[in-house]
Amino acid sequence: MNKLLTVSPSPHIYGKDTTPNLMYGVIIALIPAILASILYFGWGSVIVISVAVISSVLFEFLIQRFLLQKKTTIQDGSAVITGLLLSLCLPSNFPVSLIILGSLFAIGVGKLSFGGLGNNPFNPALVGRVFLFISFPAKMTSWPEAKGFQTQFIDASTGATPLNIIKEGLGKGDSISHLMDKIPTYQQLFFGNMGGSIGEVAAVALILGLAYLLLRKIITWHIPVSIILTVVIFTGILWLVNPAQNADPLFHILSGGILLGAIFMATDYVTSPMTSKGMILYGICIGILTVVIRRFGSYPEGVQFAILIMNGFVPLINYYIKPKRFGEEVKNG
């Protein structure tokens, strides 16, 4: 026999999951949200999404190929996800040059500076988004209204997001019941007919994405459910204590980026805890921080900051929260 036998340590078969597989799964789960954004914001959202995705992939390629002189990893799809998630939390009239800058920051600083996929402590898309938010606050807080499909990119009429309305109204001393007349109905909120960043408006599309992710077992329920439940409980308590000053839980869930954050950003593999117990703790902390920032902070929305802050705590959570080892519970008898 002239052919050499192969020897390797066990196991000798492998599952079907691969990194690109999982990444493309997330992209598929994002399709409803992308479609919804195009439906509501038209060309603006098409431009924002395509620019962000293309520039993210391009920057990953260029930096890896020429600056780091490593093998490029654009085919694993993680750069596409970064671009998509970044674009989904931008307003539809965001200038193209700044989107490119945001992608560069997300990929270059948020991801590759730390050693690329698997080593970044913070979610790169959120790093990019927070960078843009801090650097260009004016452009990041003018939200075009969702008006159905439209062809022009820069829309003159901008409006406030529901959360903005509430925040500023409360600042002026209005009561919630009065402010609720100014914001869209729950039905509109659910289907996404409101001002906001392109990806976060349509709750129904995001929930469809969540269902897909759970069905394909790409993520587990722990993070999204614990974030959303915490927000519901926390805002519910505030609401019950003082309904004049606090919006109800349903409003909080449907408005702003909680769903997008809880389903797609907090669940990012690299930057979330490894154990289910850790995931639940992480989710609860994100929920609490979000509500605290929304209600008591100076920004109307806080999901991004909450997730980034908790990203920083993930190594600590991983160190202290261990899975339940086999043999820990000893039954007598």
Binding site: L101, F131, I134, S135, F136, P137
Partner: peptide, 8 residues
């Protein structure tokens, strides 16, 4: 304006 982040 410049990129505000770098001033902060």
């Amino acid at each position: 304006d410049g990129i505000l982040l770098f001033i902060l």
